[in-house]
Design a protein around this nucleic acid. Structure first.
Length: 221
DNA sequence: CACCAGGCAAGTA
DNA sequence: TACTTGCATGGT
């Protein structure tokens, strides 16, 4: 399976090229994007990020002291704005009070301990935590998302439905713990999903949306 | 008009 | 453990 996964990686890399993820210039921008993109299209998140940049708020101290009502208005385009305002503040509070108000300091901390602390924050689930760990802090952990689940189901790489942890274990036990590889692999799966758009029906028992979509992406792989 | 998008938490059974 | 629901905007 290790060779199969590495082979798929090479094919995807050849097809789509290096993705240079995460789309964001600074670790803070990546962290903010990770929260704002929860169940939301990246296009809408871009509008929100632009608003924050224009207002000079995409900086740790500014963001932390901005009143909730103001912050909510800036991130409005990303949806669930009241919820996400609280989630961002919860996260910033931990960075401020427990991590020396420094994202650089966070990078020096141990992966599993940091992950556990992030998951304890209200509004930070597994995908958001892992996106932050991998893309903002450079920790070797594989990010699982909706695209990745469809990818696994469509290509029969994993039997039936699996939990987040099972999907993550699948990749991490079959690949070397390499930040570059995890970074690029996840980004390439997203590129594949966005290109072939293979969805899984909510109601159906079959994990595959349609044979047509499966064949299209299988033809590539 | 319906449905979806790079989730998460809280409630129910 | 396994559903269900609220959260909300913008694009198709």
């Amino acid at each position: 399976m290790r060779q199969r996964l590495l082979n798929i990686f090479d094919i995807l890399l050849g097809k789509f090229g290096a993705r240079h993820w995460w789309p964001g210039e600074t670790p803070l921008e990546i962290i903010v994007g990770a929260v704002l993109t929860q169940n939301t299209s990246w296009k809408n998140v871009e509008k929100a990020i632009t608003n924050l940049k224009d207002a000079g708020l995409l900086e740790l101290a500014s963001l932390y002291r901005t009143p909730d009502e103001v912050l909510a208005e800036k991130i409005r385009p990303s949806g669930y704005y009241n919820l996400k305002t609280v989630r961002l503040k919860n996260l910033l509070k931990v960075i401020y009070e427990e991590y020396n108000a420094s994202i650089e300091y966070c990078k020096t901390l141990e992966l599993s301990q940091l992950r556990q602390r992030l998951l304890a924050i209200k509004g930070i689930g597994e995908e958001t935590a892992d996106s932050i760990l991998l893309y903002a802090l450079g920790k070797p952990i594989f990010v699982i998302d909706a695209y990745t689940r469809r990818f696994l189901a469509n290509h029969g790489l994993h039997e039936g439905r699996c939990t987040y942890g099972q999907a993550q274990d699948f990749f991490m036990s079959n690949l070397p713990a390499d930040v570059y590889l995890f970074n690029e692999y996840h980004a390439l799966i997203v590129a594949l999903g966005q290109t072939y758009c293979f969805k899984v029906p909510k109601c159906g028992e079959c994990p595959l949306r349609s044979d047509k979509d499966k064949v299209r992406s299988e033809g590539l792989l």
